[in-house]
Simulated assay, not measured.
Amino acid sequence: MSIMQGGKLCLLQVGKCFSLASNTVIKRCASTGGTDLIGRHFLTLKDYNQSEIEHLLWTASDLKTRYKENKEVFQPLIGKSIAMIFQKRSTRTRLSTETGMSLLGGHAVFLGPDDIHLGVNESLQDSAKVLSRMTDVVLARVYGQSDLEELSKYSTVPIISGLSDMYHPLQILADFQTLQEHFGQLKGLKLAWVGDGNNVVHSFLMGCPKLGMDLNIATPKGYDVDPKVKEDAVTLVKQSGTSMNFTRDPMEAVAGTDVVITDTWISMGQEAESKKRIKDFMGYEVTKEMMAAAGPHAIFMHCLPRHKEEVSDEVFYDEKRSVVWQEAENRKWTVMAVMLNLLQQYMPLHPKPTF
């Protein structure tokens, strides 16, 4: 049974209301319980509050248990499809999204640079409108954050960031899941970032304060985090009561921390700068000595792909302290959590982890 009420169609039998406004993603205005993220875009953790991030992580943990441990066949997204736009290649983003959507019962369509030229042969606005009519959700791995924002402006289906030069929110969800699994909670952890002030650390800055984690950041001169991102992070830190420190000294950054994190020094599109960057990052390699300066139980993280100048083999392949493979696997469970929650309301079956 349904009635018109205040310009909205109310489905009384399930207690839901859906806006009839055109040119917008359909959004639920009354919830049946749990966290409702249906129709939201996922472009940056800046747009998500603590409870929403925790719900995505809870979903990821729940799905990992259901599929990996319990061997369940659970296909809530049968008949759904995702378009995957890749301006930049990626092993983990492509594999995690394709295999994750398949497990959920849906279908993934890969669109590489030879398949779609955003803003070149067709405007971003037109691409968004076409994709919206043929798929249920779009993941875009692009250079400019503005491209994601333009797609989301005109899309009537959720847009998920697979990475941009500014943010990499899917990676940070996987990192948070890995930290929760290893330490049993997130609140109170102290993280150290050693390396480039890039999209990955930008996403840590948007997420760590909301979940009660402190963050130290060591970057060489000329490779600082974006000033606007830093400004936003300072606001979040003040609101949360956490701490955030910036330094040029990697040893100072890692001192007494629980987690040491680095990333590639030469991202895609920066290959021409490789010699200069390797020189500028001298002293930033994560070594056994650097890990010894961290806390006695500190772990090492890297989102991959890894190059030897960034971290020694001794640290990278340390089975006790390096969690890079668990971190990589969790890319799958977290992107599944995002896709599922943006397409339908999901209440996990298993108890909520401690955050």
Results as ranks from 00 to 15, higher is better:
Asp232Pro: 03
Val335Arg: 07
Cys29Pro: 10
Leu205Asn: 13
Ser161Asp: 11
Tyr284Ile: 08
Glu327His: 13
Leu111Gly: 01
Met1His: 11
Glu319Phe: 15
Asn245Met: 12
Ala140Tyr: 02
Met339Lys: 11
Val315Tyr: 12
Arg321Pro: 05
Ile85Met: 01
Trp325Arg: 09
Leu304Gly: 14
Ser127Asn: 14
Asp115Pro: 04
Gln145Trp: 01
Val201Arg: 09
Gly100Leu: 03
Phe300Asp: 07
Ala21Lys: 15
Met84Phe: 09
His182Thr: 11
Gln87Asp: 04
Lys88Leu: 02
Asn330Ile: 07
Leu191Val: 10
Val157Glu: 00
Gln270Met: 15
Leu215Tyr: 07
Leu56Tyr: 03
Gln185Leu: 13
Asp313Lys: 14
Lys190Leu: 00
Cys208Phe: 11
Ile38Leu: 08
Phe246Val: 07
Thr97Ser: 05
Val323Lys: 02
Gly6Thr: 00
Met84Asn: 05
Phe355Leu: 15
Val234Arg: 10
Lys88Tyr: 03
Arg66His: 00
Thr32Gln: 14
Leu57Pro: 07
Pro220Glu: 06
Ile159Gln: 01
Gly105Ile: 06
Ser61Pro: 02
Ala253Met: 11
Val335Leu: 14
Leu151Asp: 01
Met282Leu: 04
His107Trp: 12
Asp126Ile: 05
Lys279Met: 09
Leu11Ser: 03
Leu179Gln: 07
Ala30Arg: 15
Ser123Asp: 11
Gln75Phe: 00
Cys10Gln: 05
Leu211Tyr: 04
Val142Gly: 08
Val200Ile: 12
Val120Ser: 14
Ile261Phe: 15
Asp147Val: 01
Asp196Tyr: 01
Leu111Phe: 08
Leu104Ala: 09
Met134Gly: 07
Glu327Tyr: 05
Thr235Val: 01
Val73Asn: 02
Ala294Val: 14
Gly241Arg: 04
